[in-house]
């Protein structure tokens, strides 16, 4: 009973937050919106993303994630993700050194359709992008690779030096983000994530999804 009640309340809060987001978004269309209104909108989005991430992890721990597998064009998916990503927007406006985030078309050779839960994967990749943008020197590149029934999304950033894996993992928000990515990957046919330091080049994040029957 108590579990059911908490689930109901959380669900209600999430919906109310999402409606609030739309209202703030519409408010910000008006001329001369004060800076507080804009800040409230951004906070609201951040809060929603955090809550969704947390709920996803919670569900993963409690009962396991049940992905809704759809046929998705991975290229369109990546383009939309970068286009709408808040982290990408944040990187562009980074004071001092703007970070560019691009879909690396040269690395993409599409062979088959993609099958995954776009909302879960979006949540995971958004947190990977957020991480990459925070550590990047100048640029972040994203692409995907297909091999058999495996689909691997890759996020590369040129942030080298001491920002290597152990350091990154120790940050709490990164830790949560990685746990989320691991949960989403494992829900897709026992997929995996990896982080690799390429000395002198940067850091490569990879998330592999398998198509389960």
């Amino acid at each position: 009973m108590q579990n059911a009640l908490s689930a109901l309340v959380i669900h209600d809060i999430k919906n109310a937050l999402a409606l609030l987001e739309i209202e703030l978004e519409q408010l910000n269309h008006h001329e001369g919106v004060p800076v507080e209104g804009q800040r409230a909108y951004r906070r609201c989005i951040e809060l929603k993303v955090r809550l969704m991430g947390f709920l996803t992890l919670y569900k993963h721990d409690q009962s396991g994630l049940k992905p809704m597998i759809q046929e998705i064009d991975p290229l369109e998916f990546l383009e939309d993700l970068v286009e709408a990503s808040q982290s990408v927007q944040m990187g562009k406006n980074h004071q001092g050194h703007p970070i560019s985030v691009e879909v690396d078309l040269k690395k993409i050779k599409q062979k088959a359709a993609g099958f995954f839960d776009e909302n879960l994967v979006e949540l995971a990749l958004e947190s990977a992008l957020n991480n990459a943008v925070r550590y990047a020197h100048r640029e972040v590149r994203v692409w995907f690779e297909q091999e058999g029934n495996a689909l691997t999304f890759k996020v590369f950033d040129d942030g080298t030096g001491f920002a290597t894996e152990p350091v990154r993992r120790s940050s709490s928000s990164t830790g949560l983000g990685l746990a989320l990515c691991e949960a989403v990957a494992s829900a897709h046919g026992d997929g995996k994530i990896s982080i690799e330091s390429l000395p002198g080049e940067g850091t490569l994040f990879a998330m592999t999804l398998h198509r389960a029957g």
Partner: peptide, 14 residues
């Protein structure tokens, strides 16, 4: 971060 221009882009992405 330059809040105004960031928000402009975020909200008025059009």
């Amino acid at each position: 971060m330059n809040e105004t221009s960031g928000m402009e882009a975020l909200v008025r992405g059009r």
